[in-house]
Design a protein around this nucleic acid. Sequence first.
RNA 1: GCACCCGUAGCUCAAUGGAUAGAGCAACUGACUUCUAAUCAGUAGGCUGGGGGUUCGAGUCCCUCCGGGUGCGCCA
Length: 635
Amino acid sequence: MKYLQQDLREKLYDAIKDEYDIKPGDIAFSIPPDRKFGCLSTTIPFIIAKKQKEKPFLIGNKIIEKIKDRLDMFSEIKLAGGGFINFYFKKGFLFKYLVENRDRQIKNKNHKMIVEHTSINPNKAAHIGHLRNACLGDTLAKMLRYLNYEVEVQNYLDDTGIQVADVVWGMMHYNLEEIKKIKGLASYLWHLYADVSKQLAGNDEFKAERNLVHQKIEDKIDPEYEISDYIAQEVLKDHIRVMDILGIRYDLLVRESDIIHLDFFKDAAEIMERINIMYPSKDPEKEGCQVIKYKKENIEKIIVRSNNTVTYIGKDIAYSMWKAGLFDKDFFYSTFHTYADTGKEIFITGSEGEDKEFNFGGGRTVYNVIGVRQSYLQNIISQEVIEPLSPEESEREAIHFSYEMVALTPRCVEEMGFEISAEDSKKPHVDVSGRKGIAVKADDLIEKLVVKSLQEVKLRDPDIAEERARRIAKDIAVGALRYFMIKFSSSSVIAFDFKDALAFEGDTGPYLQYTLVRINSILRKLEDKDAVFDARRLDLSLLEEKEYGILYEILLSLSLLEVQVELAVEKHEVSVAANYTYTLCQKTNHYYHLFPIVVEENREIKHIRINLILLVKQKLEKLLSIMGIPIPEKM
RNA sequence: GCACCCGUAGCUCAAUGGAUAGAGCAACUGACUUCUAAUCAGUAGGCUGGGGGUUCGAGUCCCUCCGGGUGCGCCA
């Protein structure tokens, strides 16, 4: 349909460009709310009317006169509502078009996208907040791959940060050998981190000790360094394990320690100084500091402190510039992990080693999936650094893929046995806090989902083999979780509650899975020779009006797959795809409930229905794979 | 103070400036001897926080007020 729309836009533009002063981009199409208004519609007469002071309906009628003989896929082109031009496809056109073009490849964009997501501090197990980040980022990456961009997924590791120093300080009464014996280190550290945070709060002596530990980690002094290095790596492995359960994978792990040791900031600073983005502040309060001006809020942000150390944002600037290919320096790389099933490797940066050729970094578009609270800093990076360094229009761009936090409902906090202050209990939701230990661990949530779906599976098939049941339960759990994490628009806070997250009915991942599982089940019951695409034998006039109407809605919906995915990427809203998939499934369920397929006796009608569900199956599989929702073998 | 986000059905959320504001949950009614009831059909539920404005057309854009939340550090 995308090609159809493009084609139509060009023809329309050619027909009217001499008479009206418009650009091809002004012509947009939408699908009208009611089929009596046709299957495609444009409001171009209104747009022209605004510019040229002529009645929209007069313009519309003129346009229709010009184009009506040039477009043979339509049976009718009508003016309605005072200026809408409504197009009516010839009966059967769309179905044939979809079947014939079902394997059409999306054009290669020759454009490298880097998506940074997950980026969890490597000092404790992952929680639901991190899951939202990873699910959004992974879905975005999968969408970009579907649209045929070159995509590289990076996960940034703040291995020298204060959070790691916190837990190392808390572990200093152990030696490395003892730490290596701890089972489930990430989960152990979860509790330790909460304890440590409590101890450090308001105790300056402890904080001074912790700061010393932090310094030793940065300077690679043992045993602090070796302990921190071990912890960061073990926790990272645990994050990779959890994310892999959800089908989330990475290409490259970038360590902050390597950015520091390779002194990336020096190269970044030289470039920024050269074009005066970064300069010494004249503000007496910021004497001796290098700053960047944030024009929108008229603020000077400190990048280099008066003691010559680089701030948090300074390091991120260096990393962002490297990601966008704005300087030549590169990391060294080695393999960190190999995925058993595909044999694909995750690489990790290093600061020394063999100087081999790798193609990491150098993205034309660089997405950073990070919470909305970081907007201020991310805006500085994209507006004040990357943009000025990319003078040609959209040559390089850094995009903050922003989302709101996952919070807990007060009820949920109480359910989990945390104490809740009177103040918090009045709020609509309570912030997740790794520091306080108030959060739902990713592992625990997944386990709860698996247990619940296993119950449901066994309820439906008491004789099912244990291993098979577990496999299916896991698929359902993953589907439920991933869908839950992306179905809300990213600007709304998710007030997490087990009741909603554990739901398997209605607007949920399992609903989508169920739709496809049933289609597969129907197809299994057909003979092989029946279950084939064949566009020549689709005589839709055989269908009664009601069936034709519902079938047509599904076809229109199917035709929008690529358009919807593009829209999701453009709007930075992966929920667009989730909602789209859900309505497609609703229509499909409605359809095959009313019109049986296997038992249909009229062979031509049966053939039409089979071709429809074959199309739905193909598109739905694509959509689910984009959202990382697995397809269970049965439900 | 400056910058930003949110407010839509009882609850959780949808809706490129477009035609009659839609789903799910909860409630109520109905459909399993039928290709899988994790489904489907139906009933009920709305001054889209209030007030102005722009527009042929506003839940959507602008202004203002009310209510809720966030960011603005030589922390990360």
